[in-house]
């Protein structure tokens, strides 16, 4: 494994590292709000639930270019939120890897929420009711019963969101452009390689790298899902 980078050109290593970084950071930050939104959608009858559901799913149906443009308008240097964040938090999403992470998080969010929401819905409310009668407060029930029971859904949702983030292209290139070493993730690097005449071998290497990453993510997802099942069910 130590030699893996030796097989890659610096540009390829950079694109791979950037993909992993934006994917991991984007998914990690979307997990807590993802669990919260999934819980709201699965368990609460809040006003505007339909609107929230639609909003969450919007990136799934909108052309990614539109999503990227909306992000640019909101989080760009002169964007409504972008300006506020820059003034008060001292950083920007515009044209850097943080923006790429944000774009991949937004694009992966619907898949993440969907998987976790389904597992919330699969938890028998009677189990939670039983925990209440046994003396557990609602927050205690959530941590000791609900969360362990939806763990497989969280793992599945996280990996699904991560896999989606790895493949993210349209929104990212629209929002933060194509800057090598900063926003040029694997798919964007592949796209760039295809633009250069006679660089087919280059493109092929990016294709293989993407394939490798996808298979690894899939295998990891399967492994974690089984490990969680084992822990929950106590099955061998």
């Amino acid at each position: 494994m130590t030699d893996l980078t030796a097989w890659l050109t610096p540009g390829e290593a950079e694109a791979l590292w950037l993909s992993l970084k934006t994917g991991i950071v984007g998914t990690a930050f979307s997990l807590p709000p993802g669990i919260a939104v999934a819980w709201l959608l699965a368990r609460r009858n809040i006003p505007g639930k339909l609107a929230l559901d639609g909003l969450v799913h919007l990136p799934l149906v909108l052309p990614p270019v539109v999503t990227g443009y909306v992000l640019l308008v909101l989080f760009g240097h002169n964007g409504l939120l972008g300006r506020w964040i820059e003034a008060h938090l001292g950083f920007t999403f515009a044209f850097n890897w943080k923006g790429a992470a944000l774009a991949s998080a937004v694009m992966g969010f619907p898949l993440l929420v969907r998987a976790i929401r389904l597992s919330f819905e699969a938890v028998d409310p009677k189990l939670e009711a039983a925990a209440r009668t046994l003396g557990a407060k609602p927050a205690d029930v959530f941590v000791s019963i609900t969360l362990p029971l939806i763990a497989p859904g969280i793992v599945a949702g996280t990996l699904l969101g991560f896999a989606r983030a790895l493949g993210e292209f349209g929104a990212t290139i629209t929002f933060v452009a194509n800057i090598p070493g900063e926003t040029q993730t694997l798919p964007i690097a592949l796209y760039s390689a295809l633009q250069v005449p006679g660089a087919e071998i280059h493109a092929l290497r990016f294709v293989l790298l993407s394939l490798l990453l996808a298979v690894a993510a899939l295998a990891a997802s399967e492994y974690f899902a089984r490990a969680v099942q084992r822990r929950l069910r106590g099955a061998p």
């Binding site: 028998d124 009677k126 189990l127 039983a130 925990a131 019963i145 029971l149 822990r231 929950l232 069910r233």
Partner: peptide
């Protein structure tokens, strides 16, 4: 309860 509703984990 009617069913045991034991915590499966």
């Amino acid at each position: 309860f009617q069913d045991p509703h034991l915590f499966p984990h």
